[in-house]
Amino acid sequence: MSNIVLKGISHAYEKEKVLNGIDLTIEEGELLTLLGPSGCGKTTILRIIAGFIIPDEGAVLSGEADITKWAPENRNMGIVFQNYALFPNMSVKDNIAYGLKIRKKGRDYIEEKCREYMKLTGLLEYEKRKVNELSGGQQQRVAIARALAIEPQMLLLDEPMSNLDVSLRTRMREEIRAIQKKIGITTLFITHDQQEALSISDRVAVMNKGRILQIGTPKEIYDEPERSFAADFVGTSNYINGHFIRPEQLRLGQGGEKGIPVVVKDVKFMGMYFEYTVVCTDDSGKAQNYCVTEINRGKAYREWHAGDTAYLYVNL
């Protein structure tokens, strides 16, 4: 295994530019997530790494080797597609064994590897099932096992959770992370779901309109967003004195010296917390909205109501 480096990648479909000067290094063994809205170019990056697209400009390096123009079948990348793309004419085991058969591995080796990866993904009892007899979560496991069985130099996951329901999604992302850590495989994960990105990744790259806006650990991305897009796409934020400040970093109080006087405009009860929209009038007379969240601590908590006057504090 080695790291994967994208150098100055640009690409256009027809005349529409979808990637614009992408520089990115995916370090050996890390899980890096590309996070961005649909159409931002994240899947194009994955397809360029996989070899389905040759970029108009730039290079893809695997360690020392320039693999930009290599055919997909020669790259040894494990891919999990959004719709899984399992071979419907094959059983679970045959799907997993497919890549190994192409590599002309011996029968015993194939048998051993299939068992290993079926065990890893919890599929042992489904070995002989046809893939269309499986549930969405099970199909995803097959897709992961199939991608891992070839012992790829890198695992590429293209929005793998988007076809799963919410509770399964949370469980699967934990499983994926556990498997990834266990075998230590370099992984590129693609999603538009910020929660998913923050919870699973070693590093996150936030993308918009064909560019990478910010790259860092989940905590860095969340706590110190560099641009307003990153700040808004990953959670909600308030722009105060040149800084992006998260709603939970603000607090409402009864009065005091440093608070900004505001009026509560709207209250949303979200279960775990309350979300307030408050408005303050600045020196020039312009109204400014802020979003504040406060944890619901049960009976001890005194909630605010629309129309209340309050003071806004920054909890830093």
Partner: peptide, 22 residues
């Protein structure tokens, strides 16, 4: 499903193998 072919390729199969087996 177009991804089937890509899946096969990414697993190492050439065009002819993919055509016959997938």
């Amino acid at each position: 499903n177009k991804n089937l072919e890509e899946a096969s390729q990414s697993l190492g199969a050439g065009m002819f193998y993919t055509f016959i087996h997938v």
